[in-house]
């Protein structure tokens, strides 16, 4: 295996994390990673060797994610409506996650794909504003306000969840 492939291989765990945060569902996330790898391998010449392939791969994956969310906007709305019933709907794999994890994953899915991507790429993946803006193909100012609004919205959603669970406890 040549060095370039080895470098790509090393990025798979990071790509999987980004995809999981974007899509939540494990299989859909791995499908996204697979699409990303296929595209990357087919366009290896676009990657300037010597560079760490991370930004290149994240950029490819983000483009695929944007394409995909355009096609599945309706599904995103369904996810939003079922937020309250997440426990009943969760698959066996998700049941292993703690309640706190599930709450934050649900909340993250409720954000618009644009805010979610901005928040995840900066907040979880740790890219700088400049790097993230380049990868998402938007001006740095736009990126920044998406991060800020994403955080605000997430906070509100988590507060709502906390309030609802508090009410449930009182009702029992």
């Amino acid at each position: 295996m040549d060095d370039r492939r080895a470098a790509i291989l090393a990025e798979i765990p990071r790509l999987r994390r980004y995809a999981r945060a974007l899509l939540r569902d494990r299989d859909s996330a791995d499908d996204l990673v697979q699409d990303c790898l296929e595209r990357a391998l087919a366009r290896m010449d676009n990657w300037r060797t010597g560079d760490n392939p991370r930004r290149w791969l994240f950029t490819i994956m983000h483009h695929l994610f944007v394409d995909q969310t355009r096609k599945t906007k309706r599904r995103a709305e369904v996810v939003m409506l079922t937020l309250d019933d997440s426990e009943a709907l969760s698959s066996p794999a998700e049941q292993a996650d703690s309640v706190a994890s599930r709450e934050i994953m649900d909340a993250l899915q409720t954000l618009s794909p644009e805010r979610r991507a901005a928040l995840v790429i900066v907040g979880i993946e740790g890219f700088s504003y400049a790097e993230a803006a380049t990868m998402l193909g938007i001006p740095a100012g736009t990126l920044m306000s998406r991060v800020a609004r994403g955080r605000e919205e997430l906070r509100g959603l988590l507060d709502d969840v906390a309030r609802r669970s508090a009410i449930r406890v009182v009702e029992r």
Partner: peptide, 25 residues
């Protein structure tokens, strides 16, 4: 909140990479 987000997804990095993905590369 950021720490919660990071903790929630930190485990993904330690999952074994599915063969379908690694094998592709």
């Amino acid at each position: 909140d950021r720490a919660r987000l990071r903790d929630t997804f930190a485990g993904v990095l330690h999952e074994p990479v599915p063969h379908a993905l690694a094998g592709l590369v």
